[in-house]
Design a protein around this nucleic acid. Structure first.
Lengths: 223, 223
DNA sequence: CTGCTTTATTACAACATTGTAATGTATTGG
DNA sequence: CCAATACATTACAATGTTGTAATAAAGCAG
C-alpha cells in the first residue's frame, strides 16, 4: 500500500514510517501542510495520514480542500487533541478516521490497512477504453468518438476480449477459448464472420480502422 | 443512510437509535449475533454497527463471516474493551472502525457518516446479493445457493431491478419504465409472462420462494 | 503472372429470445 | 357462494441472434 504521512515532528514521522514499512507498505513523507496537499494531489496514494496541527496550513483545512477538489483518498487524522469535539471535527472535515496520540504502532498499521483495504481490493474495472473506443461493462454500451454503437452479445464479448488485449496480437485459438469457450477447432469460420460483423460496426463509418488483421497470426485492436 | 445496530443491551440500542434517527438516518436493530448477521446479509445497509460481545455469536466472528461471504458493507465496532489489542483485533476481523465506550452521540454519528460516505462515493457495485441469491453484473451470472442459474437478457434486467429494490414492493409501472423502457401501458401481459419465467428459474426447485406477489400492488423480492 | 492459401463478405438456415394471446387458477367483495 | 378481477401458465408467432456454407477478395510463394 502507498501511504503519505504529513507530520512536522521529524522523530514521530520517522517512527511511523518505519512501522508502516515493516508492515510492507511504501511510505512518503511531507513536513508541512502545503507540501502534503501538493503530494496528495499528485501522487497516487492509497491512504493519507495527516497530523492535525501542521506548519503553514493545518491538516483540517488541507483535507477540506482536497475533498472539495474531488480527491477521495481515505484520510487518517492523527493528533494529541483526543477529545470528542476534535475527533468529530476531523471526521466532518472529510477525514475517514481519527487516532489520538499516544497510539501503538500496531493500531496505526491496522487502521491504515483498514482504510486502504477497500480502495485497492475494491472494484474490478467496469469501463474499458482503447483510444477513442469505449466500453461500459455494466451498462453494456459501446461508443466510438462518443457515438453509441449497437452491438450483439457475442460481438460484445469479442470486442471486450480484444480491448483487454489492445495493441497485442490475439490468436484465433485464444478467441475460441475465451469468447466461445470452445476447446477444440470447430472447423468453421465463426471467427471470421464475427470479426467482419464487428468491423462493420466499429470501423466502417470511421476514418481509421482499429481492428487489424495480422496475417497468419490473428487480429490486433489498435488505439 | 440506512444503519443496522447489533447490540444486546436494550437501553444502549435505543439510545443509539434515537441519536442516529435524529441525525436523519434510518435505523434497524438486532439483539444477537445470528440475527444481526442475517439482517446484514439481506437488507441493504450503508453501515453496520456491531457490539463486540453479543449473545450466541460474537461480533467479531459475525463480521469475519460476513467478509468471507463477500459482504463489504462498512462496519463500526463498538465496545467497552478499549485497549489497543482489542481495537486491532476488530480492525483485522474486517471492521472499518472501532469506537470505545463511553462515547458521545456526536462522535457515533460522525463516525457512522464517515463510513457511509466512503462507501457510497465509491465505484458502482458489480455484485448484488439478496439472501442466498447472487448476481454478478460483470460476468452476467446468477446463482442461488451456489447453483448457477441460466437466465435470459430480459429476465436478467428484471431480476436486477428486483434485487436492487429487494424487500420493497415494485409496481408494474416501475418495471415497464425501468426494465422495458416503455413509458406507456402496452396493454399486454409481458410482465406476467416474464415474472412467471423468472420464477420458474429462481424459485422452482428451491424450498422457499423469494419472488412474491403483492396483490393489487406489484411484486416483491424477499431475502 | 499463376496458383495456392488465408482472410472477407454475403446469404441463409438453425436456433434462441421475446412478446401476444388464450386459457387456467387464485383472491376478494358482495 | 358467485361473479368479477387480478394474476399465472402455457402455447405460439414474430423477431433477433448465431453459426454454417458458399463465394469473393487479398496476400504470398514460386
Amino acid at each position: 500500500m502507498r501511504v503519505l504521512i504529513v507530520e512536522d515532528a521529524g522523530e514521530t514521522a520517522l517512527y511511523m514510517r518505519r512501522a508502516l514499512e515493516e508492515a510492507g507498505h511504501v511510505v512518503d513523507l511531507a513536513a508541512d501542510g502545503p507540501t502534503g496537499e501538493m503530494m496528495a494531489r499528485g501522487g497516487a496514494f492509497d491512504v493519507l495520514v495527516f497530523d492535525r496541527m501542521l506548519p503553514k496550513k493545518d491538516g483540517l483545512s488541507v483535507v477540506t480542500d482536497l475533498r472539495t477538489a474531488g480527491i477521495a483518498t481515505p484520510v487518517l487524522f492523527l493528533s494529541a487533541l483526543g477529545d470528542v469535539e476534535h475527533r468529530v471535527e476531523g471526521l466532518k472535515a472529510g477525514g475517514d478516521d481519527y487516532l489520538a496520540k499516544p497510539y501503538a504502532a500496531s493500531e496505526l498499521i491496522a487502521r491504515v490497512e483498514a482504510l486502504g483495504r477497500r480502495h485497492e481490493g475494491g472494484a474490478p474495472s467496469t469501463h474499458l477504453k482503447v483510444g477513442e473506443l469505449e466500453m461500459d461493462l455494466l451498462a453494456r454500451v459501446v461508443r466510438r468518438e462518443g457515438r453509441k454503437i449497437d452491438i450483439q452479445p457475442r460481438e460484445f464479448r469479442l470486442l471486450e476480449y480484444l480491448m483487454r488485449n489492445a495493441n497485442q496480437v490475439v490468436t484465433r485459438t485464444m478467441l475460441l477459448e475465451k469468447v466461445w469457450d470452445y476447446h477444440f477447432d470447430p472447423q468453421t469460420n465463426v471467427i471470421d464472420v464475427h470479426v467482419s460483423r464487428l468491423r462493420s460496426k466499429i470501423d466502417r463509418e470511421f476514418d481509421k480502422p482499429m481492428l487489424h488483421t495480422v496475417r497468419g497470426a490473428g487480429y490486433r485492436l489498435e488505439a
